[in-house]
């Protein structure tokens, strides 16, 4: 009978349609899965590397979040040596938008931005006028180099803000590097037997000038 005959090809056509629909759904699922690929490694390495770059004890920083002036002029090999987490990944470091280091092409990777200061250190030398054997250092500095030469008086002790930093009963003579607090203005006091003349002490202090910057670390694992 023709009905039975006609239904078979109809069923076959229907099944072909269903198969192709199933295939289409699997293709859609595949596309959705690929689109959902987060690749957490990108973000993790970017986070970790940016942390290592700005942390206190890093070779690139003077203190936490303060970079040395030429800290980022690294080669990729040097970056790998100092920060092994970046090994094998494509990395780009930008400071205020300018690329300072690039390996590969990390387009499509994760970016982490850090707020930093870039510190430039200067050395300023002056021969202070000693007012009652004391002088104030004009800028805040972390250390001072004192050049104490022979003069009319023997300098036995040097105090920085009442803290003894140098002491020699037989008299100080030579070049001394002294650490001071950068959080307060330092007043140097020289204890001698006679008032010191100008020129017997020369001091060098190291003020740092900081400028703000944004460090962007982009990594494509």
């Amino acid at each position: 009978m023709s009905r039975a005959q006609a239904n078979l090809p109809a069923v076959a056509v229907a099944l072909v349609l269903l198969t192709s629909t199933a295939g289409l759904s699997v293709a859609l699922a595949d596309a959705a899965f690929a689109g959902a690929d987060r690749d957490p490694a990108d973000r993790r390495v970017a986070d970790a590397l940016s942390d290592r770059l700005v942390t206190e004890s890093s070779s690139t920083t003077r203190r936490a979040n303060v970079l040395r002036e030429d800290a980022l002029s690294l080669t990729p090999a040097a970056l790998d040596r100092s920060f092994p987490v970046a090994r094998g990944h494509e990395v780009r470091l930008e400071l205020n938008g300018a690329t300072v280091l690039e390996r590969g092409d990390p387009i499509g990777g994760a970016t982490v931005r850090r707020v930093v200061l870039v510190a430039r250190q200067q050395a300023v030398t002056l021969t202070p006028t000693l007012d009652r054997n004391a002088t104030t250092i004009p800028r805040r500095t972390r250390r001072v180099t004192l050049e104490i030469g022979p003069s009319n008086a023997t300098v036995r002790t040097v105090r920085a803000n009442d803290r003894i930093v140098l002491h020699d009963p037989s008299g100080l003579n030579g070049s001394y590097d002294v650490r001071v607090s950068r959080f307060e203005t330092v007043r140097l006091r020289f204890e001698t037997d006679r008032p010191l003349a100008r020129g017997s002490v020369e001091l060098t202090y190291y003020p740092t000038v900081t400028s703000k910057a944004t460090l962007a670390v982009t990594v494509d694992a």
């Binding site: 006609a6 239904n7 109809a10 069923v11 229907a14 349609l17 269903l18 629909t21 289409l24 759904s25």
Partner: peptide, 20 residues
């Protein structure tokens, strides 16, 4: 005659695509 199978297939396709 033909339309029954095609109708069934149509329903099946709609269901599958709805999930997809």
């Amino acid at each position: 005659q033909l339309s029954l199978s095609v109708a069934e297939a149509g329903v099946g396709i709609v269901l599958v695509l709805a999930v997809a």
